[in-house]
Amino acid sequence: MSDGVPMLEIKGLRARAGGAEILKGLDLVVGAGEVHAIMGPNGSGKSTLANVLSGRPSVEVTAGSVLYQGRDLLELAPEDRAKEGIFLAFQYPVEIPGVSNAYFMKAALNAARAHRGEEELDGMDFLEFARKKMKLVEFDEALLNRAVNEGFSGGEKKRNEILQMAILEPRLAVLDETDSGLDIDALQVVANGVNALRSPDRSAIVITHYQRLLDYVVPDFVHVLADGRIARSGGRELAHELEKKGYSWLEVAPPVEAAAP
């Protein structure tokens, strides 16, 4: 990656989902090595942003641009974005009956490796590699042989997302409310997963409703999303301010800049 090109550059992004406009001119720049937290009330467009970045077919981009390492991201198919290093930790991980977790992850890892011109891992090598990662996120190995997310508890599903992230080692990780519904121990695991990936050439966008996670994953920047736009940006102190004052505080506060509707 050439110096100076941001990891992600979003300009004037508008997007529709479920028949309504959700993102209404969103701008965001994420530099290489940075961790950005995106907070905001329910319905402000946080998940829609995650869906746009990962290419979910049900979300329609109507205006604006998204550059990923200087390339147009929006023209790529979801699997190509993944192979290029974008990872979405799903808010609601999907169950795939009959397909084992190990097989699924090996297929995903080998798809990315093939894309990078690297040799595919065989079963044994993959297991060895996966075991190290499982330690990191305290993942029960028995879950590896179960069908993807099938019958997993909420916490197990989230750990599974973080394990997949650890295995795929993405350049840009997007965590969509991965912390919701987790106890402190599980939260620590999620944080370990994200922190282990921190490096000058990797970035992360952490979407969360609560600032709690940000005590463990210390962000470089915090943005507040409201009604489809970034309403406020700042350092990590912004998260504490939000926690204290609540999201209603935003409604009276003026936006950073008056964007045209």
Partner: peptide
């Protein structure tokens, strides 16, 4: 499910492979 397909694709698995994988999983028993 659309969500199953998307989940696989977000992990870098092509749609064709994802369908195979899901059908295979469906028949596994």
């Amino acid at each position: 499910g659309e969500d199953q397909l998307f989940y696989c694709r977000q992990r870098g698995i092509s749609e064709e492979d994802a369908i195979s994988m899901i059908v295979n999983g469906f028949c596994k028993q």
